[in-house]
Amino acid sequence: MTNGRKEMYIIIGLLAVAVVGLSVGYAALSSTLETTVGKVTQSNLKWSIAFEGSTASAEEEGTSSTGRSCGVATISGTQVTVADTKVSKPGDKCTYTLKVVNSGGIDASLTTITPVKPTGSDVTCDTADGGNMVCGNVTYKLTSDASGDTVLENDTTVTAGSGQTMYLVVSYTGAGLNESEVVQTGAGFTLVYNQK
């Protein structure tokens, strides 16, 4: 019995330490400024950041349609998935217009854009930085302009109730042609929005 009680006391003690530890861990990098106010009102705020819409079709560019087809993008909340796409010769390009909407009551900031490299045999990405990724003859980009030239930057703000338009671009940027079919699977980007 006594041992049981002892164990309980230990558990309580550990939990108390955990709570204090978490609080201290978060509090270590902050400063506390004290002000005195007459009344503090806490509004009922919501945090909500997601892609708008359900599908997006691409703007296609290029010369002949040989070797080019732009899959439809399916949008569901925080995820956009583009169906199978082909770009095979210089000039082939698919551009998708996407919009991130802050339908909450708290401003948000795009803090990081992380490229996700594709898989496939002999796929290497010479560039994978933020919203720009070059893998062999194919370039993937997240841009702030429809022409696909200006890579989307971090630290852009999406205020409460507003949206941020961006463009997902995949294009054939190699100088030569492939002597055989090449498939890259799962290329993409992860965007993290934090409270501003």
């Binding site: 925080t78 995820q79 998935t81 199978d84 082909k86 498939v183 890259q184 799962g186 992860t190």
Partner: peptide, 11 residues
Amino acid sequence: SSLKVSFGSTT
């Protein structure tokens, strides 16, 4: 919030 965009495959 973490948002993700991805291509199924690029051929």
